[in-house]
Structures are given as C-alpha cells and as structure tokens.
C-alpha cells in the first residue's frame, strides 16, 4: 500500500495509556493472519465492510455470501454468519436468504470472474428484480486464485496466462463494464465504482460502502452495487507499488472512479 497501515499493538510507546486511541481493528474483523498476497486490495475491502457493520451495529442481523475466488475464505475474517456460494451464484444465494429473511441485511462479496463471467445471468437478474441487498464487487481484472488467467474485465493488450500475447479484442472480446451495464436496470438503486489503493480512495470507498448498507437498511430502493477496482500484484506480475501505480496510470482511465447511479432524490 502506498500508505501502510500499522496495527496499534505494534507501536512501542511508553505513554500509550495516556494517548487517545484513534484506530483499532473492527470488532467484527477476526484477528487472523490474512491469506491474501502482500499488497492485495481484498484485505482493505474486507476491513471497510466490517467497519461498516460495526458502525451500523448490524452484526446480529447481517448475513454475508462468499464467492469462489481469492476471497473464498472471507468467512475466516468476517465474524458474521456467512454462506459460501458456488462460483457465480452468490447473488442467487443472497436472493434466497433475503426472500425468507427480509428483515436481515444481506450482502455478497464477489470477484470479477465470479460476478462478470460465470455469474453474469445471476448478477443481472438479481439486480433487475431490485433485490434489496448489497453487492460488493472486487474487480482486479484477472483470475487471481487459479493463477492469473484472463478475466472478462482484463484490459485490451494485457498479458495473462491465457492471453500470453495480450488480450486481443478481435478474438477475446472486450473488457466488461459491469457497473455501467447494470446501472441502466431499474432495480439498481445505487451504483458506484471505488478503489482502495490510497488513503484518499479508501476513505471514499468506506463512505460508499456505508451508504450502500444504509440504503439496504432503509429498504426504499433496490440493489446497491459497490465496485472496488483493486490490484492483483501476483497475477499482474508486479510489485504492490507498481500495481498501484498501474491502477493510476492505466486502469482508472478505463474503469472511471465515482458514483455511476445515485438513488432518486426524495
């Protein structure tokens, strides 16, 4: 990360008792060593969700759905009830939960292979029904867990293990802008694209996440969709710093950050 986060218990300070505590691990984020690669955005995305759950005091009413992909073990870190979905089916599972427990807060946490390739139908129809859930979509433009294959979101020309000469749009198609696509659906209530590669972007992503969960609690509209454009240093064959730089230099030109659809003003 460009601005490393330091755990407070690691700070050696004689006057610690007299200092104000300004930062701590969210209570619902389980204190366990993360399995993610160094520099990966997943851990920050996890943290933002759990901060949100703490702040809204919804641990007892929240049910999360984990995907297949690098975040398949999300429930190892999120101290809430969770269900592990098959690849691409997270929003269908979430739909099932929400339909029988409408007073609970339900969210999915999905990668781009999961949400934008194998689960495209489930994604579109869940949002088109306006299921009152939150979808957290972590888009790093690659299949990380299986070893760096081309994803539906991979940029043209980008080299992966299944596009060794770079993504050729003539034979491999174009990167899919899911957030823009689903924003035209009436069931999409709030659609935003955020990042977690800098302190500034983390703060913005946190606000967006908080809003999305708040909208679900208010229960006025449909699906809230928070895309987090993340890096994948291992899959991209870059250092964490290089991968964050690459986000700024290349990725955000294509995946523009910011709100894409806001709830209608009352």
């Amino acid at each position: 990360m460009t601005e490393p986060l330091i755990e407070p218990q690691h700070i050696q300070c004689e006057n610690l008792d007299q200092m104000d505590q300004v930062w701590t691990r969210p209570e619902t984020l389980i204190d366990r060593k993360l399995h993610y690669c160094p520099g990966c955005g997943h851990s920050v995305a996890h943290r933002l969700i759990m901060e949100t759950i703490d702040e809204l005091n919804i641990q007892e009413t929240t049910i999360g759905v984990a995907p297949v992909g690098c975040s398949v073990f999300a429930y190892h870190y999120m101290d809430i009830d969770m269900q592990e979905a098959a690849h691409g089916r997270a929003t269908a599972v979430a739909t099932g939960i929400k339909r029988v427990l409408p007073d609970r807060i339900v969210f999915t946490y999905q990668g781009d292979g999961d949400l934008a390739a194998i689960g495209t139908a489930e994604t579109i129809h869940t949002i088109n029904r306006g299921e009152n859930i939150v979808i957290i979509f972590v888009n790093n433009g690659i299949y990380g867990m299986t070893g760096g294959q081309m994803a539906p979101t991979t940029l043209p020309g980008f080299v992966t293990s299944t596009s060794p000469n770079g993504r050729d749009t003539h034979t491999m198609g174009y990167p899919l802008k899911m957030a823009e696509m689903i924003s035209v659906l009436p069931g999409a209530y709030y659609v935003t694209r955020q990042a977690v590669h800098s302190a500034k972007s983390v703060r913005k992503a946190k606000k967006a996440t908080l809003k999305a969960f708040q909208y679900q609690m208010d229960g006025k509209g449909g699906t809230s969709f928070v895309e987090i454009v993340s890096n994948c240093p291992s899959g991209w064959k870059m250092t964490p710093v290089e991968s964050n730089q690459y986000l700024d230099d290349e990725i955000f030109d294509f995946y523009t950050l910011g709100d894409i659809k806001l709830p209608p003003k009352e």
Binding site: I63, Q83, A85, A92, V93, G96, I97, K98, V100, L101
Partner: peptide
Amino acid sequence: NMVYGAAGA
C-alpha cells in the same frame, strides 16, 4: 442456489 440460500437460513 436460491434454495441453497433460503434453506441455509
């Protein structure tokens, strides 16, 4: 998969 979710509840 909706069954999986709802039955899981």
